[in-house]
Each structure stands twice: as C-alpha cells, then as structure tokens.
C-alpha cells in the first residue's frame, strides 16, 4: 500500500535531465534512447561527462562559437555575465537559470540540465518506440549517476515497464541498497560500472570507497538480475594485472559472466575547457588496442564473455 501511495504522488516529480540522446547504439542492445541524468556522487578523474556531475543546472560556454554580440550579458537577470574579449561568468552570481542560453543566437551558451516531469520525458522517449520495437532496443538511463535521483528514476522505470519499453540502467552502483533492490524490479539489464578493486585506490581516483558498490553488485548477482559489468580501462590507473586478477576473482564469486572493457577516451577534454574545470587526465593517451586485447584475453581465460567497447 505504501508503494502505491508513492506512485500517486510521483507524476509531479521532476528530474534534472542533462541530455536525451536518440539512436544510442552503444549502451545496451538495439537502438536506444539514452537519458542522461545530472548529478553524480563520484568524481572520477577520467569522467568524460563532467557536465553531468553537479546536481544543478549549469551553463556551458562554447568559446569558439561565440560571436561576442553581448546578447547573453543583456539577458542575464543576475548581472552575472560581462563581455571582456570573451563572455566571463561570475559563478557566485549565476543561478543557472539559462536565460543567457535562450538569448544566444549561435548556441554558444547552452544550458546543461533541465528539470523535466516523467510524462514529459516519456513523450520524448516514445518518439522512437518504433525503432525500439524493430531492434529490441529501448531506454537506457544513464548519467551522471541516475540513482542520485532515485524517486524519479523509479517512476520513469515504472512507466516504461507499463509501456513495455525495455529498460537498461547504467549505474556506478554507489547508491542506497534499498534503492538498488527497488529499481531492480523494473530494470531489464544493468550496465554496472566497476572501476577499481582496490578500495583505497578507488577512493583516490573517484572520491569514494568501493565497498558499497561491491555490496550492491552482490545483491544484484544474488537476486539473479541481468548484469553486464563495465570497466573503463584507464592507463596507469586500472590497466594493471593486479586489478584484473581481483576483478576476475570477485566476479567469479558472484557468477557474473559478462564484461565490457571500455578504453579510456578523450572525448571529454573539450568539455573541461568549456566548463572551466580542471582536467586531471590532461596528456593521458587512450590505451593501445593490443593492451585492451591482452586484458580481454586474460579475462576470457577465466571464462568471462568479454567485449571491448560495447
């Protein structure tokens, strides 16, 4: 009964959505629409979506597109912007309202993060239902860490189930175990990130320890949820044999068999500049293809089904 009361109150709930990406073909089977939620409790050094970390709307600035017309400066209700060679934002004054992005004629200022209701989001997702039907695709909820907004995600998953849209949840696993249990009822497939097996190293590179993450993965494994474990391979961080051995032992113990190895890439580099954030991976090269193959072969020897990319 308690649950249904939650459901009734849910439609008014809003989620902070970073981006809705159609024809997403790398995050789960078939043609999917990936919904990126904003907000993440982790601060991974290699994060390629740094704009997804904060649980606040924020403005991204594409300096190369900006024509210095000053429309944004005039549009800002807080007086947070001024034009001096380029558009400078006073982050103390900016409230992330997005008026500047609305005023920009060239989309040099874009609002990352929009509060949306479940029906509003569902309508966007349903636009590609015919492609889901054809390809056995569906929705992938990603982030950020989607479970930073647990109520919204649960509601979204429920309505997707109602419309028979297949669901994938892409999570780092750093969430309340009760939340994991609840949402797992409506998730057809988990893409579960596992970055580092060593607890201390995990804390160093992501800002949090990994005990909760490992515990939650065990919960999913024990209850028989469909899980693909995804490991970003970051040179110098987790591409060593020690981490791979530990990963293999842990997943064997859980009887999870599917692993995607995702080579680190530099797609996010430009985003750090646009957000005026410090990029701690500056100068790190993506892992060489034979390095990826070596790691994959190592895990395949232990009986895992391994894909590179994914």
């Amino acid at each position: 009964m308690h649950e249904s009361a939650d459901l009734l109150s849910a439609p008014s709930q809003r989620g902070l959505i970073l981006h809705v990406m159609r024809f997403s073909v790398h995050d789960g089977p078939g043609i999917r629409t990936t919904v990126f939620l904003k907000g993440c409790p982790l601060r991974c050094w290699w994060c390629h979506n740094p704009e997804s970390q904060s649980l606040q709307p924020e403005v991204i600035y594409f300096d190369d597109r900006c024509i210095r017309c000053g429309d944004c400066v005039r549009a800002c209700p807080q007086g947070a912007l001024h034009l001096n060679g380029q558009v400078i934002r006073d982050s103390g004054l900016c409230r992330g309202c997005g008026e500047c992005a609305n005023a920009c004629p060239v989309t040099a200022r874009q609002l990352a993060g929009r509060w949306m209701t479940v029906p509003e989001l569902l309508a966007m997702v349903l636009k590609d239902q015919i492609f889901f039907d054809e390809s056995r695709g569906g929705i992938t909820i990603s982030g950020g860490e989607p479970l930073t907004q647990p109520g919204f995600v649960e509601e979204l998953l429920r309505v997707c189930r109602m419309r028979r849209i297949r669901t994938v949840l892409d999570t780092c696993g750093f969430a309340d175990s009760a939340v994991i249990r609840t949402v797992s009822k409506f998730v057809d497939l988990f893409l579960y990130d596992l970055k580092l097996m060593d607890c201390e190293k995990h804390r160093y590179y992501t800002g949090v320890k990994n005990d909760l993450i490992l515990r939650n993965l065990k919960i999913l494994a024990d209850q028989g949820s469909a899980v693909i474990v995804r490991v970003p391979i970051v040179p110098g961080v987790n591409d060593d044999i020690d981490n791979t051995d530990k990963l293999s032992r842990f997943l064997s113990s859980l009887q999870l068999r599917k692993i995607d190895l995702l080579p680190y890439h530099r797609i996010g580099n430009g985003k750090y500049q646009r957000l005026h954030l410090c990029n701690r991976m500056e100068g790190v090269e993506p892992p060489a293809p034979d390095k990826m193959e070596t790691l994959a072969a190592r895990l395949r020897r232990d009986g895992f089904c391994v894909r590179i990319g994914g």
């Binding site: 995702l262 080579p263 580099n269 430009g270």
Partner: peptide, 19 residues
C-alpha cells in the same frame, strides 16, 4: 555529423580539434 569515438558517438563538430 555523428562520429563514433571508441564506444561512444558524438557530434563531430563538438569534438576538440585534436580529437
């Protein structure tokens, strides 16, 4: 123009020059 970068696709024009 969408391009695939590793296990990820993005709009080409949004990528850095180096990428």
């Amino acid at each position: 123009l969408i391009v695939r970068v590793a296990g990820y696709s993005d709009y080409f024009c949004d990528l850095t020059r180096a990428l």
